[in-house]
Design a protein around this nucleic acid. Structure first.
Lengths: 241, 241
DNA sequence: GTGGTCAAGTGGTATGACCAGTAGCCGAGA
DNA sequence: TCTCGGCTACTGGTCATACCACTTGACCAC
């Protein structure tokens, strides 16, 4: 096993995670009031600034509402939280959350072809060259994890080609959710990233400049693994209940 | 003009916004180091905790990288920031950013039909009832702003029906970007939200349970206004250059 | 060159104090 | 009895300061 860089967890990080877990896993219902900052600091055995920093970050994520003079209350994260919360929800409670993973796969299958279509509309020769290079990198390795990384890099180029800030940020958020689990998912995704041919077809389709062709090609890249993973997850979800 | 609730801007908020503007508008390049917290506090005339809180929030948004003992450096927000940054980018520099608005419209056109298809797969009679109620609320007003609000509520129900956490959070993020500009956009979106018939057709399509029908119906709801707005924005973008 | 040491600078954390806004109690007045 | 006003206790907001922990780079011994 390769050495991993150590990542020291700061006190506010710790507090943030604990409060987040309470909110997300239902220990605290929406509308409920949190203990005061002083009280929390006392209970957790940390200083008030540390608590304060954690709560402010919670507020930024729209998970709680902090009111000067009043108490801090929990908000309904399903109604207000943004896509940046996805990584936290995917890894909730130690393992992968099957329902969240399913929804990510579904979203990918919707967004991917849309992005490819836009890239086809807007890309030029430079984009095709970058895509080709990315495909060759993908073809140049046999390792499943490395292939994952190269596939991700390929889509990164596609997103660049789409020239859409919204899709770019969306992709960043999804990638942030995906990357921590990348290694664990490598065997499951091997089927997809091993089909270099499909990526070549997609590259050519984008190069042709026809959105519909690109859309279809992207779907052919994403659909097979998505389908098989979804059925696997469905079995998992049912067995959990 | 109706009275607006005052929203007191805290010191860390102010600092956050200033640093954010520097990073997003290019005053600080990616990789560049920020002044130290003490120096920033001195320059801005605030305390170090205030600066610290702002920087931590920047770090949470993945706009800067804070290293203990080292200096805080700017990251490339296009490469790392998540969808939660969208509202800030849309309203960059006082007005609406045309390129960002365009990308939101494009994303909407891709994601909306996808969500509708999922809702058709999973929704039952209860969903249709909720959708019908939402359409009736939409039909019950003539005011453009109110219609906007009701249309948003309608899509909210669709997203619920899709039973996908990813799309739910995505919708929340897009709505957070959209809502501040809702009033300004009302006249432009009037064309879309006035077509109650299209919403009824979409509702029926979702009720039928056929994803493809629902997808097509959703596109018929979204496409017309999207197209006309895109051409308007294109003219705007060109005139800006 | 390699590794060790050290000082300076940076972020991390804690403490304590005080300011500012909220909410509820409670008495004075209608 | 009701209502208004202010008082009070509690909450979050901000600050100054001190000290800890880490990184960096220079310098030095090996």
């Amino acid at each position: 096993m390769p050495l991993q860089p150590v990542s020291p967890r700061s006190v506010p990080d710790e507090v943030f995670d604990q409060v987040l877990a309470e909110v997300v896993d239902g220990g605290l219902e929406a509308g409920e009031a949190l203990p005061s900052e002083r009280r929390l600091a006392e209970v957790l055995g940390v200083s008030r600034p540390a608590v304060r920093e954690a709560l402010q970050r919670m507020a930024q994520t729209r998970l709680v509402e902090v009111r000067h003079g009043g108490s801090t209350t929990v908000r309904d994260f399903r109604r207000h939280a943004g896509l940046d919360l996805l990584p936290r929800l995917l890894l909730r409670g130690g393992g992968l959350d099957a329902a969240v993973a399913r929804s990510i796969l579904e979203a990918r299958l919707v967004v991917g072809p849309g992005v490819a279509a836009l890239a086809a509309e807007r890309g030029g020769p430079a984009l095709v060259a970058a895509l080709t290079a990315a495909v060759e990198a993908l073809a140049g390795t046999e390792d499943d994890v490395e292939r994952q990384v190269h596939a991700l890099a390929y889509w990164d180029v596609v997103v660049d080609g789409a020239d859409s800030l919204t899709f770019r940020l969306m992709f960043n958020s999804l990638r942030a959710a995906y990357e921590p689990a990348l290694e664990a998912l490598a065997p499951l995704m091997a089927e997809e990233v091993g089909q270099v041919g499909a990526y070549r077809v997609l590259t050519a389709a984008i190069g042709e400049g026809d959105p519909d062709t690109a859309r279809a090609a992207a779907e052919r890249v994403l659909r097979p693994a998505t389908t098989s993973l979804l059925t696997a997850l469905k079995a998992l979800e049912n067995s959990e209940e």
